[in-house]
Design a protein around this nucleic acid. Sequence first.
DNA 1: GCGCACACGTGATCC
DNA 2: TGGATCACGTGTGCG
Lengths: 209, 209
Amino acid sequence: MSSSSGSGRSATEARALKIHSEAERRRRERINAHLATLRRMIPDTRQMDKATLLARVIEQVKLLKRKASEATTQSTPLPPETDEVSIELHTGDANAGADRVIYIRASISCDDRPDLVARLAQAFHGLRLRTVRADMTSLGGRARHVFILCKDEGRGAAGVGASASLRSLKEAVRQALARVASPETAYGSSPFQSKRQRILDSHYSIMSI
Amino acid sequence: MSSSSGSGRSATEARALKIHSEAERRRRERINAHLATLRRMIPDTRQMDKATLLARVIEQVKLLKRKASEATTQSTPLPPETDEVSIELHTGDANAGADRVIYIRASISCDDRPDLVARLAQAFHGLRLRTVRADMTSLGGRARHVFILCKDEGRGAAGVGASASLRSLKEAVRQALARVASPETAYGSSPFQSKRQRILDSHYSIMSI
DNA sequence: GCGCACACGTGATCC
DNA sequence: TGGATCACGTGTGCG
């Protein structure tokens, strides 16, 4: 205490005290305003305890952090444990007859190895397919690659048997991918290798060229 | 006031008051503990105003929400018209000290050309970075490629200057990508070519090897 | 002295 | 009435 006598406050003290309380009120208002904002942007927090509200904020920040991080590092599911090849045809706009562009979505899941991408590129090149889009994942020795391929000009197969040639093209792509996925099928190389071992062994890059 | 006489409090009143103040203290402690937690999980908020801390929390939640949302909706499929290079570091869980794995999200947008992917792979290889995931788009002569790179073992830079070496690694990747994006900057090759022309000319494959 | 930010105790209020 | 929460004024320390 700076100065005091028995009775009340001096005039200056009273005024200072008032200023102080007002400042403190403004401070509380700032904090509470921010709290209200948080309450608005987080679901199911209307009329909830100030403390538990903060708990939910923490929880939400954690969750969003995980979500954002994992979304930037892997936006597609993990490579499946079983080998798969899938082909889809997409003729861009069925009625627009002018351009005759064919898109193929080819997906392959298999064990990863250094020459995988190169082999695939080679296969596509041999089929006169252009890779417009590619999505590749390599994890734990497994790879899952998805390609959007484009057959720009169906000149050679334009006329009558277009539909038939489409099917054969599709089948050709499937076989090519299957060959790449397991080059030595029919050979007796043991397919039994633990997942753990594969993970330990695998430090392949999907872009080893 | 419930009851009062001139002098002091009754014994029961005093005890109740004490209980009350203790409860209030506990409440404050809970709130402050949560605030401390938030302060820990948001960068650069050590000894910062309680109010401004909450402001940063709001800001962070907004940012993370946008990030997570746009990452799940994949809202940037088309290559932008302007050249861009962006690098992001992701150390997997800052506190889990054991594994020391570093992920880098590197994104490049530029004119497409046959050797682009090969150049990028070469650059990453030179920086001892493994490509764990790749997402490549080629459309209308423009390319937008996103890579998740992995620096498996920071053996050489583990100790003191880890943070600094991270920054320098990030900068190295950025410069490498910039070089690949526009190899002949500073030369006088005319940058003026119509978008239309580029589209007509471009039949590149992003996997031409 | 002044401004700022914090913790504390207290009265009011609502189940 | 008892427990829980809130807003308020005040005391106190730091630049």
